[in-house]
C-alpha cells in the first residue's frame, strides 16, 4: 500500500475526494442533505463531512439522534418527499438497525408502487478491516446488500473513482449503498479533477492489463492485490480488475478478461461462503466455461466472525495469500 509519503503526495485523499463531491453536489442541488451521527460540528468520526456544516448550515448537514433505523427511515421519507438525502451510517457494523428500513423499504418502494414512489438516497458507510478498530468497526457486508434486489452497491477505492461514483450515486434515481474502504481513507493522495464529474455506476476498471490471469477485487483489497502482483515473477502477466461497483455487476469487463486469460482469482475481505466472489465465480463458469484453464479461485475472509484486531491481519486476505493463490492457479 502506498502509505509512506502521503504527506508529500499531491492531490486528494479518499476522504478529501468524498468531501469534495459532497460539497459540490450540495452546492449544485439544494435538495441534497446529509444526516447522521456526528456529521456536523465533528465532521464525522473520519472527518469525511468536515467543514460542510459550516458551509451549508445545520439544516442541511444534520446531526441526528443516535438511531440508525431513524436515520435510514427518515431519509427514505425525505427522499419520498423530493429531497436527496445522504444518510451516513458511522460504521459497517451499525448498519444492523438500519437494515429493515434499507432492505424492506428503500429497496422495494419503486417496485411495490410500480414506479409511483421512488427513493433516491445514497447511504455512505465506512467499510472493511485493517485499522485496529474495536469490534463491529471492521466488517464487509457488501454481499448482503448486493443480494437485496433494488439496491445499487458501490465500493470505490481511489479518490478519483470515489468522487465520480459518489456524484453519480447522489444523482441516481434509486437507492445506492456507497461503501468507503476506511483502510485507505488516507493512505495515499491522487490528483482529482477539481470540477464535478461522474463515473457511471456499474463499470469496473481494469487497473492493469495482462494476459495470464485475471484478478477481480474491490475496496482496500485492490492494494493488497497490487502488492501481491509485485511479488510475482516479472514474466507473469496479470490483469487486475477493480470492480468499483458491486451491483449492478460489470459482467462484460470480467468476461472479456477471463476469456482472454482463462484463469481468475477473486479477492475480497468478506467471508468466502456466499460472499460476492461466489456470484462472480458463477458468472465466469456460465460465460467462460470453455475458456477456463483452471478452476476459479477465491481468496477471501474466512467463514468466521471478523476477529478482534490481534488476529485481524491473520483473517484478511493479504498479498502473500493472494500471490500464492495466483501462483497455484497459474500452475494448474
Amino acid at each position: 500500500m502506498p502509505r509512506t509519503d502521503v504527506m508529500k503526495q499531491k492531490g486528494l485523499t479518499l476522504v478529501d475526494a468524498i468531501n469534495e463531491a459532497l460539497e459540490q453536489e450540495m452546492t449544485r442541488d439544494e435538495r441534497v442533505v446529509i444526516l447522521g451521527e456526528d456529521v456536523g460540528a465533528n465532521g464525522g468520526v473520519f472527518r469525511v463531512t468536515e467543514g460542510l456544516q459550516k458551509i451549508f448550515g445545520k439544516d442541511r448537514v444534520i446531526d441526528t439522534p443516535l438511531a440508525e433505523s431513524g436515520i435510514m427511515g427518515t431519509a427514505i421519507g425525505l427522499a419520498m418527499a423530493g429531497m436527496r438525502p445522504i444518510p451516513e451510517i458511522q460504521f459497517d457494523g451499525f448498519l444492523g438497525p438500519a437494515y429493515d428500513q434499507l432492505t424492506n423499504h428503500a429497496a422495494r418502494y419503486r417496485t411495490r408502487t410500480r414506479g409511483a414512489i421512488t427513493i433516491p438516497l445514497t447511504v455512505r458507510v465506512p467499510v472493511g478491516g485493517g485499522i485496529h478498530a474495536p469490534e463491529l468497526h471492521s466488517d464487509s457486508p457488501e454481499a448482503i446488500y448486493a443480494h437485496t434486489p433494488g439496491l445499487k452497491v458501490v465500493m470505490p477505492c481511489t479518490p478519483v473513482d470515489a468522487k465520480g461514483l459518489l456524484t453519480a450515486a447522489i444523482r441516481d434515481p434509486d437507492p445506492v449503498v456507497f461503501f468507503e474502504p476506511k483502510r485507505v481513507y488516507r493512505s495515499f493522495r491522487e490528483e482529482v479533477p477539481e470540477e464535478e464529474y461522474t463515473i457511471p455506476i456499474g463499470h469496473a476498471k481494469v487497473v492493469s492489463e495482462g494476459t495470464d490471469l485475471t484478478v477481480v477485487t474491490w475496496g482496500a483489497s485492490v492494494f493488497e492485490c497490487l502488492a501481491a502482483i509485485d511479488k510475482l515473477p516479472e514474466d507473469v502477466s496479470i490483469e487486475l480488475i477493480d470492480l468499483r461497483t458491486i451491483y449492478p455487476i460489470d459482467l462484460d469487463t470480467i468476461v472479456q478478461s477471463v476469456q482472454k486469460t482463462g484463469r481468475c482469482v477473486i479477492v475480497h475481505e468478506a467471508p468466502k461462503t456466499s460472499g460476492f466472489g461466489a456470484e462472480i465465480s458463477s458468472l465466469i463458469q456460465e460465460h467462460c466455461f470453455l475458456y477456463l484453464k483452471a478452476p476459479v479461485q477465491r481468496v477471501a475472509g474466512f467463514d468466521t466472525v471478523m476477529p478482534y484486531y490481534k488476529l485481524e491481519l491473520d483473517y484478511l486476505p493479504d498479498a502473500k495469500r493472494i500471490a500464492e493463490s495466483v501462483t497455484q492457479t497459474l500452475a494448474y
Partner: peptide, 8 residues
C-alpha cells in the same frame, strides 16, 4: 490450511 481457495 489457512486458505479459502480450493487449490490452497
Amino acid at each position: 490450511t489457512a486458505r479459502t481457495s480450493s487449490l490452497g
